[in-house]
Amino acid sequence: MRSRFLTCLFPITALLLAAATTSQAAGISQGAMLSNSCAACHGTDGKSPGAIPSIHGKSSQFISRTLTEFRSGKRPSTVMGRHTKGYSDEEIRLIAEYFATLK
């Protein structure tokens, strides 16, 4: 194992440079982790194929305001009030920012 690791070192420098431009496997962000749960109802990346509203393409302001209003009850809902009570302000911000990057 150790020797294989050492033989690897040579091309690594070149690969590191290449990697700066080709994003191979980006780290999985906390925002992605939180937001992937939404897909079961709102579709992958928030693109819903059916009766549940799509959230793909919405701005981060829209998503964070809507989620916060669901949570406080200001905005009526069937199930979203029950879901949003499971998320802190910070988590709502991460979810909103994640969806905004999918535009």
Partner: peptide, 29 residues
């Protein structure tokens, strides 16, 4: 290359996101 080696390697280089991105090609070794 096993997980331990990769982990040490990341620590050595500071574990920035650029390094993370490089890990795909790194596995080519």
């Amino acid at each position: 290359m096993n997980t331990m080696n990769r982990r040490k390697f990341i620590q050595l280089l500071g574990g920035s996101s650029v390094i993370l991105a490089a890990l795909g090609p790194l596995a080519a070794c």
